[in-house]
Design a protein around this nucleic acid. Sequence first.
DNA 1: TTGAAAGCGATACCAG
DNA 2: CTGGTATCGCTTTCAA
Lengths: 333, 333
Amino acid sequence: MSNIREVARLAGVSVATVSRTLKSPERVLPETRDRVNVAVEQAGYRPNLMAVQFRSRRTFNLVVLVPNIANGFFARVISGAQKAAQAAGYRVLLCDTLGCEATEREFAELVHAHQADGVLQLRAYDPFASTSDLSDVPPIVNACEVLQSGRHPTVSLDNRAAAKAVTQHLLDLGHRRIGLINGPADSPLTHDRRAGYEAALREADIAPDPALICPGDFSLKAGYDGVLQLLAGPERPTALFCESDEMAIGALKRIREMGLRVPQDVSLAGFDDIELAAYCDPPLTTIAQPAEQFGQQAVEMLISLIEKRPLPARHVTLPYQLTIRQSTARVAG
Amino acid sequence: MSNIREVARLAGVSVATVSRTLKSPERVLPETRDRVNVAVEQAGYRPNLMAVQFRSRRTFNLVVLVPNIANGFFARVISGAQKAAQAAGYRVLLCDTLGCEATEREFAELVHAHQADGVLQLRAYDPFASTSDLSDVPPIVNACEVLQSGRHPTVSLDNRAAAKAVTQHLLDLGHRRIGLINGPADSPLTHDRRAGYEAALREADIAPDPALICPGDFSLKAGYDGVLQLLAGPERPTALFCESDEMAIGALKRIREMGLRVPQDVSLAGFDDIELAAYCDPPLTTIAQPAEQFGQQAVEMLISLIEKRPLPARHVTLPYQLTIRQSTARVAG
DNA sequence: TTGAAAGCGATACCAG
DNA sequence: CTGGTATCGCTTTCAA
């Protein structure tokens, strides 16, 4: 593989001139420049980025920690992140952490090892939690699922308000017994969404009933299993709010298997507005999140951090949208 | 950030000794070793991987080119790839190329720029097609959707046989008019699956009818749109084979909207066996592909290539499995 | 067993 | 405008 010296030799100039021609051509005589360019061509020369980065102490790599790549929502976040990164001349080192803290810490360490310039974390875990010396904490942005510490910049959604809006929508349709299938217990998303759900109920003078709330984890299976528990009791709810579309789709299957219809017997609402939500039968009422924007905004903030540009805002909240389709209807009777 | 010199100073040894202690401790006196380790600890030293890689000319990075991260099938392939990479001490640089050849070439170039040791391509496009000098082609493995050139090692599925098996299954159920919704026209997958479909028909003495074949692109929408065309004619097919589960799910929605039932009026089969296939109503008959294995095998081959170990086989074919659920049934009448 | 020193490839400073 | 050269942090001979 040819190097800069080889090119210099071919062009009959010094390595310094080759470097200059490539980096700031205006500082080189056009004639010399041409000779160098010819030599570059001839040698099939490509700068060894390893060396460049080593020298400049910059990698233009961003580590993105994803809890689960297979999740349609994160896939869109990643897509947005990648576009923003590419636009700014950065690359994305994607890591499917499966929610494993050790893995997350390990990958975050890549920054300390000079393998990346910053970290984008899409889960509520601070891989640098144990680093008390703030000057030792590299550029990091937290998006989607954020920490309350406020230590790092964040991009989030007002999950409480969104969940409240969905619940309100169900209340408006006359529902009084509304079931909830939660997300993972340790996630702030779950906490906020549940809080929004309960707030809406209370404002309608309905006491939240713990028997109507069941644990989940955002997966198809959790929705499928959750329904069994929620619709088993004597006074079954007339509506169900699932904290993710995947759970809603799992729930839908089980509801059908139990011989009930959506929305005639049970109204069903999800969260995320994944592509599939519109293709369900019936199409799913849900909360649309600007997934791509999460990734894009977060990456832009991260790059500002890296390049030490001022951040317009340390904490950004993106808008949600209640998307009403046919899975929710006025309560029967 | 502390460097190796700092550690050497603290331990009162030379940088060479520090390096040795870290790389081959057995070549260092235990006593010295301990002193070095203490110094490492004390200085909070972490080797600058940039420098290590620069010096050793190895990055332990693998570029993985994915046509579409949002696709559930690829998500599983990636998961398998990542596990295999991690197990071998490599990292994955994931690139969502969106099928853009320029992007693919650009990322593949990272190998030439010494940013990665090899490339895993999950699509039938050779980013080094223009490189005629074989010694200039870096380690690369092609998986899932493979090229016919045979230039690079591959991991694939016998798509023709799999499609033939699905079609045979439908024929066995008494179907004679079987529609097909194709994948992208430029993909070998599409070609092979269609060939399998036609072969099965011919063996049953049925002439493939072009009017029963419609173009698609593996997306929900393509399935949704395709049905409109296929079921519009006077002699509508009694069964439909979609070359991806996503298209089958889109098709399902449209079939319902047309007032037809699956499988009573139309049998429906997909391909991929994504998680959702089992959660459809009715659950989808489909071809299960060992997605994780694709990623795992391909990465293992790639690493063998990189480390110049002999490959057990240059072309690996993984097994498929016809998974029969409730979306296909004996033809009515 | 340990240390001194020569690079890896590119950059940038300082002279000329 | 151009060239010589020190330097980034680490690895790896080669000697001692």
